[in-house]
């Protein structure tokens, strides 16, 4: 049996988004077993909510309001889907639950369904043809539907893992800025973030054919193939994939092998929705291999990094970190 003190601390951690998954369960069990506990929890949470937080610009919201008013008049909005994830505080540590929700925004029949996943979150969904898609942080997936036809076509920016239901009669198309992937039924990962210098496709099972934008040539990929397209040089390379680490994110894991410091930083930024700057010695000469489950906080990750690399870190603003090289 724990003392009340223990639960007071647990609630304080909950409010600041610092609970581990186990602690959430513990808190839920405690609040669920007794109405008095529940009341304590809800009252304290309510009080916390009533204190205005820091990071919210009203002026920005006002601008966005006026822009929306203009858009509302300019065009009839198509209906679109919105995606909801865990509480703001929770976003900070990357503990996330993805729930897809719908929101009607007009009367015109849907022509494009948009799924968005904010930074710091991941989400899973099932498309109307039964295909499953997992979306990584900061990704967008548009799903075209035109009423009756069985067209299977999506547009992706960001990173997604697809498990496409087999339907040889209706190919499943994934469009990205760099290429289009055509499949009948298979599992594969596509990574095509706008701010990356590359985009890539990794095939886990089945077969896909990939066609670069503005080209007629189709490239057929086999299971285990990893295609990486260099956006600057406009070249691509196919190599044997490390499929496990490419797609670990879909199971809420952060797994990486031999990646450069800059790439690690970029992934952490998306995963935890933070900004990380680094300076000093050429940190890029370090490569990283590691595995995190998503219950670690960004602090724990940075602490772990500190053990293996001569760095220091400090928080600059609300969601910004600076990493500096520590010369020995």
């Amino acid at each position: 049996m724990h003392s009340d003190h223990h639960y007071e601390n647990l609630i304080a951690r909950y409010l600041n988004g610092e609970c581990t998954e186990q602690e959430y369960k513990e808190l839920l069990a405690w609040a669920g077993e007794d109405p008095v506990n529940r009341k304590t929890f809800l009252e304290i949470k309510d009080t916390w909510d009533a204190i205005p937080g820091g990071d919210l610009s009203i002026e920005k919201q006002l601008v966005s309001f006026y822009r929306d008013q203009l858009e509302r008049r300019a065009k009839t909005r198509i209906s679109y889907w919105k995606q909801a994830v865990a509480i703001a505080a929770v976003l900070a540590i990357g503990l996330v639950s993805g729930i897809l929700v719908t929101q009607q925004k007009g009367v015109v029949p849907a022509s494009e369904t948009l799924f968005e996943v904010p930074l710091g979150s991941r989400s899973a969904m099932t498309l109307s043809d039964g295909s499953k898609v997992k979306l990584n942080s900061g990704s967008e997936l548009a799903w075209f539907t035109d009423g009756k036809s069985s067209r299977r076509e999506v547009r992706l920016s960001g990173e997604a893992y697809f498990e496409v239901n087999s339907d040889p009669g209706t190919p499943f198309l994934v469009h990205t800025n760099d290429f289009t992937v055509e499949v009948t039924g298979t599992s594969f990962n596509i990574c095509t973030y706008g701010d990356n210098p590359f985009s890539s496709a990794t095939l886990a099972e089945g077969s896909i054919s990939l066609q670069f934008a503005g080209s007629d040539k189709k490239i057929d990929m086999k299971p285990g193939d990893h295609l990486r397209y260099d956006r600057d040089k406009r070249t691509y390379r196919i190599a044997a994939a490390d499929v496990e680490s490419e797609i670990a994110w879909k199971d809420g894991e952060f797994l990486f092998r031999n990646i450069a410091f800059s790439e690690l930083v970029k992934r952490l930024e998306r995963w935890y929705d933070v900004k990380i700057s680094f300076k000093g010695e050429d940190l890029n000469s370090f490569t990283y291999t590691g595995r995190f489950k998503n219950q670690e906080t960004i602090w724990q990750v940075l602490d772990a990094l500190k053990l293996t690399t001569p760095i220091d870190y400090r928080r600059i603003t609300f969601r910004e970190f600076e990493i500096t090289y520590r010369s020995s």
Binding site: E21, V90, S97, G98, I99, Q103, A124, T126, G252, N294
Partner: peptide, 10 residues
């Protein structure tokens, strides 16, 4: 009215 299509984690 939201349609919960998938729910995972936490």
């Amino acid at each position: 009215h939201r349609k919960v299509i998938a729910m995972h984690e936490v």
